[in-house]
Design a protein around this nucleic acid. Structure first.
Lengths: 161, 161
DNA sequence: GGTTCTTTACTCGGATATCGGCTGTCCGAGTGTCCTCGG
DNA sequence: CCGAGGACACTCGGACAGCCGATATCCGAGTAAAGAACC
């Protein structure tokens, strides 16, 4: 049960986009170079964010990605779902159907007590993720490392891309 | 981010072992036949439960698996960790080290705000899993389906294995 | 000089290889049982 | 009849393939900008 590595990249990239502001679009290559990530693969993740409506993408020269809305309207869950998909980790395969006394027509996703319990745990996880926005993260970072926004802007302004 | 299918099998098998009682050991083949699962693969999962101290295993004729302790001392988290391993789903790769201003010696597992936030979500998930024992599950099942214990015992007693 | 058209270079987007881990299977080590043989 | 020894069959345990999804890469469609040509 390993989460897609792109989730981490996407979260950090969204934060960076937040510090850079929505004026300019930033290419996947620039965002990848910031952390030394494979550009084409990060591009794939950013595409997923665009499909989910978290980013907007523009092609051509001076194109790239920018935030579709402010960071306080983007939760951690939004990003995770955009990359990982909406399915929960535990998937009940309804093996009770195969057992003695099992009803092939029953919906054990709802009936199976184990499925319910695992669903509650998944819900607690999602609730925690949905309770934190990227603006919260940004605020915490800026409180602990006040020069991060300026350094980030500087890097994207000076380093050739 | 898909959970190992063996977790579902392990949970259901532990419940069945709880209904059958600790007097007799039950073979992986019998437990697998109950749901029509591949016997050798279920055996692999049960081995993991034995390594984790949830089950005890005995070889030879009249051997098999039995519960190492009562169901009220086995949480859902115990079973999940036994099958999936102790690592959490989100693994911070500390990409901040590679970025400008990154400290190669810093422990970003603790410092990175994103890592902290994802860790909190994982903790909420684990807390929910640890808060429910298999005895709770058993009680809920018996409340909704009172004849399940007897039917299960009957099946294991009558069906040849 | 201004406007329009063409060329150009750049970026996203999806299609295409490659790799690791879950899924599934098989055979050997160990062990309890049953039978046989001897006392 | 009773006990000891041995053969046997059964089960776990770990070692060995197969397959699917994540990882990583590449090339084409579309586009905005820059330059050239024309008015």
């Amino acid at each position: 049960m390993r989460m897609n590595e792109g989730v981490e990249w996407a979260l950090h990239s969204c934060l960076n986009l937040g510090w850079l502001g929505p004026e300019r679009a930033v290419t996947a290559g620039r965002l990848a170079a910031f952390y030394g990530l494979p550009p084409a693969y990060l591009n794939k993740q950013l595409q997923a964010l665009a499909r989910a409506g978290i980013l907007t993408s523009t092609s051509g020269p001076r194109g790239g990605f920018r935030l579709a809305r402010d960071l306080d309207a983007i939760t951690l869950l939004d990003v995770v779902v955009a990359i990982e998909g909406p399915d929960e980790a535990f998937r009940c395969t309804q093996i009770l159907r195969q057992g003695p006394g099992g009803d092939p027509a029953a919906d054990y996703l709802k009936l199976c007590v184990i499925s319910q319990a695992m669903g509650r745990a998944d819900l607690a996880w999602r609730r925690e993720l949905a309770g934190q926005t990227l603006a919260d993260i940004r605020a915490t970072v800026e409180r602990g490392y006040p020069d991060t926004p300026e350094r980030t802007r500087e890097w994207f302004a000076t380093v050739a891309g």
